[in-house]
């Protein structure tokens, strides 16, 4: 086949590509932040909560982790309105992505909590620390250090995972790329360009996380 690569038509749309990349990062950051809070609450509930709460969290984690994100997006956007909860595309995307990440975060954080040797908790008890102090100083902070690598990896997976939210009309990098593909019909060139953009985003985030871990934990994560 004779195919002549023409990147010109794509670079004329660089504004849109930048917009898409920014939207991707916004969706990733917002949903990761909310998902982390969900994960933290869930992990605490699952480790220290009453049995019924543990069960509920376990069911949530299993359902979300064993079904595709796409199906979850459809549910939030198309089915919740039938129950009277109407969210915009962006809100629905962020909610679904948050719930998705939350389930993984519960498991990661729970593993972190369990990585604390029981002896330390007993030691803290014998020092007379309150329940709240123990949770904070003996469990949460050391566990954070232990789970940091897994959480940041999950953030990267979330970044790549946002590429499917265009199914409910939310705009991000892949959606912009698909729009441009339909306008310019330069599919090959566009996919090469957005592969590079995703690559740069992921690399930049990895680098940032490594720097943050050096500052936070003074420890090579």
């Amino acid at each position: 086949m004779n195919y002549v690569f023409q990147f010109g038509p794509i670079f004329r749309h660089s504004d849109e590509l930048i917009y898409g990349a920014v939207r991707t990062m916004e969706l990733t950051a917002a949903s990761s932040a909310i998902g982390f809070v969900i994960g933290l609450a869930g992990a605490l509930a699952r480790s220290f909560g009453p049995i019924w709460l543990k069960r509920i969290v376990a069911v949530y984690v299993e359902i979300i982790r064993n079904t595709p994100l796409l199906v979850q997006l459809y549910f939030v956007f198309f089915s919740l309105p039938l129950m009277g909860v109407k969210l915009s595309s962006d809100q629905a995307a962020i909610l679904a992505l948050s719930i998705h990440l939350g389930a993984y975060a519960v498991e990661i954080l729970r593993a972190g909590i369990q990585s604390i040797p029981g002896g330390q908790i007993e030691a803290a008890k014998s020092l007379g620390l309150s329940r709240r102090q123990i949770i904070r100083h003996v469990i949460v902070v050391p566990a954070a250090r232990a789970v940091y690598p897994a959480l940041t990896s999950q953030f990267i997976l979330q970044l790549l995972g946002t590429s499917i939210v265009s199914a409910i009309a939310a705009e991000e990098l892949t959606a912009v790329a698909n729009n441009l593909a339909m306008q310019t019909f330069r599919n090959f060139e566009i996919y090469i360009v957005i592969a590079i953009i995703y690559f740069i985003l992921v690399r930049a985030c990895s680098l940032l996380f490594r720097l943050v871990s050096l500052v936070l934990f003074r420890w090579k994560a």
Binding site: I156, L160, S163
Partner: peptide, 15 residues
């Protein structure tokens, strides 16, 4: 690990 699998799939199929 740094590019979406969708893009990798397009590269194999069309590229």
């Amino acid at each position: 690990q740094s590019t979406p699998i969708l893009i990798q799939l397009f590269m194999v199929y069309y590229g």
